[in-house]
Amino acid sequence: MRFLGTNKKNSLEKSGGFDESTLATLGDAELVEKYRAGAEKAFTVLVQRHTGAVYSFVARYVGGGSEAEDIVQNVFVKVWKHLGRFDIQRNFRTWIFTIAKNTALDWLKKKKAITFSELHTHDDTTLFEETLAADEPLPSDVFDTSRSQEELSTALSTLSADYRAVVLLRLDSQLTFREIAEALGKPLNTVKSHYRRAVGLLDQQLSRTK
């Protein structure tokens, strides 16, 4: 039985015979396979690769603060714990964002800090559907760089958790709609619908602050 302090692998063994620069050229699925084969540095490379995107998503999702860092740490601990059961055929990135979104949502629920837009219900219907403009603004208009991060954070916080997740995964994390649908476990058309409505709401919100 392995007890504490008996892990005496040297650096080369920890990387499975590969150095970190070589591991960095591998794809996510290959890194997972290498990690399962005993190359512990492969997981380090995965963390380095995805920390930025996960942090950015979580920080915007929960509204910033030091809590974002704690949540990101929890996300990667969960990723590490469940890496043995991860299906290599799946997209690793969408899987990690699924965990990130669920972890952040759990945190929000604990803090009772979820804001639900009065305009939307949970069954994808909207009370004001008819009043939405036929031509929703392009996200590039909404996310004008002349706007401060604070304006953006405030506007994002007015969205429901579901809408916020879709917008951030699309615009901040640069996932495709299909990947977002996979990450959130929702139908593709629902994701697209949420996205359009969310952008419209953001535009309304940001227009008030101009």
Binding site: G52, A53, S56, E69, V72, P139, S140, T145
Partner: peptide, 10 residues
């Protein structure tokens, strides 16, 4: 979209 900037982690 090129206008959104990802937040830099600490």
């Amino acid at each position: 979209v090129t206008n959104t900037n990802q937040l830099t982690p600490p």
